[in-house]
Design a protein around this nucleic acid. Structure first.
Lengths: 189, 189
DNA sequence: GTCTATAGATCGATAGAC
DNA sequence: GTCTATCGATCTATAGAC
């Protein structure tokens, strides 16, 4: 039995990519109508609060995806190493090996973050917490595991910045490989 | 003999902070007139091409600062370790221990980068090149030195993202300390 | 160089018919 | 749910007096 997606739900992935390309302030409603094919009235029908509600829905969607495909597997996998490997694989896939940016990170950089402070804060907190938890299972020093997790998440964000700046996805994949290798060597060593 | 700064030059640091707060698209001319005290006519007198020229001037100003205070010292210092230490000290100071973001990184993330592609590309290229050069002086594996430099610059960018997202500058200083320590241990070890 | 005034486009958002 | 029409505000940018 296929899940029927409402028109609202079908719109969210498109909105996500539009915000990713243009940022929150750089995205206009007419751009959204152009790229979604939905008129303004339809957009306001689905998202009565307008652009802010659209971005909120996108952030919620991103949050769900990461919870399901990254954060929970880090907690659930029997073997932390495989959970961590799974994280790198999924994150690499999600960001299309560096071709896509992280919308949450982009929102964090300018005053857009004041519109969605808790969504932005929680996304990174849960990511760091989950990764730290997985590392800590193998690596007994709790504080050090946390620092390693924090640095890894930050480096992934920075790798996206550099890949976009240089317009070169290889920068991203290169850094991702190093990060995974470092975690594994810290855990095993 | 004091250097006389032209009115245009005096405006640039203010513009820099305004763009940092709001992003390029999020910055309006009326916001600029409010925060600089200059009327629109004065702004267009100094920057005939408008907002784009203002951002260009800011990027050029940032570029100069990093060349003078970070990139050249990395090349010039007799002892690479002290050049690298100097980089971390200055970068930490420049970003006010994580309270400020990197405007070039922020511009890179959305389609603002299409307005200033070479400025954005060069900033990171020169940074990575200079750091790789300094590392390579002590650490003979050229390719590995480059990768370490690339990862370090990316991690600094990511640390800024995380610090802003969490609204906690300690995240930034913590990661900066780890990065410097790692480079030193790779060089010495 | 700076002022006032304003053009012309686009912004987010809404009303009302269907 | 989607259409057309439109509101008032704001946007970038310019004109012309001083």
């Amino acid at each position: 039995m296929e899940k029927e997606l409402s028109a609202r739900e079908q719109t969210i992935p498109k909105l996500r990519e539009i915000f990713r390309q243009n940022g929150f302030e750089g995205t206009s409603l007419s751009e959204i109508t152009n790229q979604t094919g939905l008129g303004k009235s339809s957009l306001y029908h689905f998202f009565p609060q307008g652009k802010t509600e659209m971005a909120e829905a996108v952030l919620h969607d991103i949050d769900q995806w990461f919870n399901e495909n990254v954060f929970l597997p880090l907690r659930k996998s029997e073997e932390p190493v495989s959970g961590i490997h799974h994280m790198f694989k999924e994150v690499n896939r999600y960001f299309k090996t560096g071709d896509r940016i992280c919308l949450v990170g982009a929102f964090a950089l300018d005053n857009t973050r004041e519109l969605f402070p808790s969504e932005i804060k929680d996304y990174f907190k849960i990511w760091v917490d989950s990764l730290a938890w997985a590392i800590n299972k193998k690596y007994p020093h709790k504080l050090e595991a946390r620092k390693l997790a924090e640095e890894t998440v930050a480096s992934i964000q920075g790798a996206l910045v550099l890949a976009r700046a240089q317009n070169d996805t290889k920068v991203f994949t290169r850094i991702m490989r190093r990060l995974e290798k470092r975690i594994l060597s810290e855990i095993d060593g």
